[in-house]
Design a protein around this nucleic acid. Structure first.
Lengths: 127, 127
DNA sequence: CTTGTGATCAACCAGATGGTTGAGTACGTG
DNA sequence: CACGTACTCAACCATCTGGTTGATCACAAG
């Protein structure tokens, strides 16, 4: 898996068990044992999941006696939301523009065969 | 990887190349060749990436002559955004409640050692 | 100091992932 | 029809992932 922060966050949440853990942490901190209880996997497996979440910055563990309460760090969500919103908005704007183009078209175009004219999708890497 | 839609979308975006492809598709449809050009991997590798994006519902391919223009399906973003927003909001609300609790506390508590009182983090599986 | 509890570390395993090369398919054009 | 173009399919490989078991660490209570 790639090392960049965004990839780590997405990868961390690409697992239903980990998403469930995040969901449960959103209502309050919990220990590893508490978190592991609902699942039929070993404690070690849950510990691994928590490590993944921690390395993604989604979760932090503070030592308190021999217990290690796990805490949800909600700020990292922003990283994702920003990325998603950016391209969603861009794509939606494109739809609007496409609608405008279609609306302003002369009506001698048959609407059944949308064979794209040479529109050359803006080549070149992302800026 | 888990088969549920949300996992597939997150997993699909957990790769920088795939995120880059999504970014480029947000400004306009493109063919596989066009998409593959900027990367130093083979065309087949990019084709695989597109398959992952397609199975996640992020992208669709329509046959147009021998070309297969790839199109971004922005609606699936909503799935993620909803999930993220839900738990982000929940976590933030919890912070506010915690602040209230702290504010209403008698001042004989030393603020340096935040040893959590028996607050028992709401056990039991997710509702 | 010994014991019990909570959690991590280490080694291992099956299966998925991202990449490769090589062959095959689908279509427009000479 | 033959050929080139645009892709996909198939097999293979190295590495990552999610899970296991067994040993170990850290700490509180006897």
């Amino acid at each position: 898996m790639a090392a960049d922060p965004l990839s780590r966050v997405f990868a961390a949440l690409a697992d239903p068990t980990r998403r469930d853990i995040v969901a449960r942490l959103s209502v309050g901190d919990a220990t590893v044992n508490e978190l592991a209880a609902p699942y039929d996997v070993t404690l070690q497996a849950v510990s691994k999941h928590l490590k993944v979440l921690e390395e993604a910055g989604l979760v932090s563990r503070t030592r308190e006696a021999q217990r290690r309460p796990v805490h949800l760090e909600a700020e990292v969500f922003d990283l994702m939301t920003k990325w998603i919103e950016r391209y969603r908005r861009q794509a939606e704007e494109r739809y609007r523009r496409l609608d405008d183009v279609l609306a302003s078209l002369p009506d001698d175009v048959e609407p059944t065969s949308p064979s794209q004219p040479p529109e050359k999708a803006e080549k070149g890497a992302t800026p």
